[in-house]
Simulated assay, not measured.
Amino acid sequence: MKKLILVIAVLFAAGAHAQILTPVHWSYGFKKTSATEAVIFMKATMDDGWHVYSQTVKEGGPIKTSFTFPVSKQYTLIGKTIEPKPITKFEKSFSMNVSFFENSVIFQQKIKLKPGIAKTTVKGKLEYMTCNDQKCLPPEDLDFSVDIK
């Protein structure tokens, strides 16, 4: 009897694990633009049919993509995180126009290194939501870091 319960539990756990969808894949990088400045790149690559939302989604819509960076003694942020021009369409599920990205998108954040700092690690957190034509997945929070050299 114990073996039967164990087998059922293992099959249930394997089935639950197989159903986890991860249609958005994030990668990170940087480019130094001078000895004291750099741009951090946060790239989302979406599986076919999926999209992520812009940082400018209005209240009442889906969860917008957002980036937060903790205060650092080694660098300061220059302006806000920027994004390319999104696609804007009416989505029935939200009863409003929403802005989003398909296939891939690169968000950019400029930083300025503080005097005497040649390399550092930029840490951040992003929140995003992804949907396709049939469903939306719950919002996800991801921590990330980029080593600036």
Rank of each mutant, 00 (worst) to 15 (best):
E83P: 02
D133A: 12
S34T: 15
F69T: 13
K32V: 12
S99Q: 08
L6V: 13
F67V: 14
S72M: 06
F30P: 14
G15M: 11
E59M: 14
F107W: 07
F69M: 10
V71C: 02
Y28A: 03
A16P: 00
L21M: 12
F30G: 11
A9Q: 05
T33P: 02
D133W: 01
A35W: 09
A38G: 12
S27W: 03
A9G: 12
I8R: 03
F90R: 09
L6I: 15
A13G: 04
V122D: 06
K2W: 11
V98Y: 06
F100V: 03
I148Y: 02
T68E: 14
N103P: 06
T68I: 09
K58V: 12
I63M: 14
V122L: 05
A16M: 15
T36K: 00
I8L: 12
G15A: 13
V122Y: 01
I106S: 09
V24A: 11
D48N: 11
I111A: 07
V98L: 06
L113I: 05
H17Y: 15
I148Q: 03
I8Y: 01
K31F: 01
M129K: 12
I148C: 06
Q55F: 00
G116F: 04
M42E: 13
E37M: 01
F100Q: 00
L6K: 10
G124T: 03
Y28I: 07
A118C: 08
A38P: 07
F67A: 11
K114T: 11
F100T: 06
I111M: 08
F41E: 14
N103F: 03
F107N: 05
M96T: 09
P86I: 13
T81R: 09
F12N: 08
A14R: 01
F67N: 10
I111V: 11
L126T: 12
Q108T: 15
K149Q: 14
N97C: 08
E102L: 04
Q19A: 15
D48A: 15
C136R: 03
V122E: 02
L21T: 03
V146F: 00
T88A: 02
Q74G: 06
D141L: 09
V146M: 01
K110G: 12
F12E: 05
I106N: 07
Q19K: 13
K149N: 14
I117W: 00
L113M: 09
E102F: 04
T65Y: 00
Y53P: 04
K64C: 05
M46G: 10
L137I: 04
T88C: 04
P115Y: 02
S34N: 08
K2M: 13
L113R: 07
F30S: 14
F67Y: 09
V39A: 12
P84L: 14
I111N: 06
V122R: 02
L6G: 07
K125H: 05
V10Y: 00
L137S: 05
Y28S: 07
S54L: 05
K149H: 13
K149C: 09
S145D: 13
F100A: 03
G124S: 00
W50I: 05
Y128Q: 09
I87Y: 03
I82W: 06
E140Q: 14
S27K: 06
S27V: 02
P84E: 10
M46H: 02
S27E: 11
S34V: 13
H17Q: 15
Q55C: 00
V10M: 12
G60C: 05
Q134G: 10
I148N: 05
P139F: 00
I5E: 14
A38M: 09
P138E: 06
L11P: 02
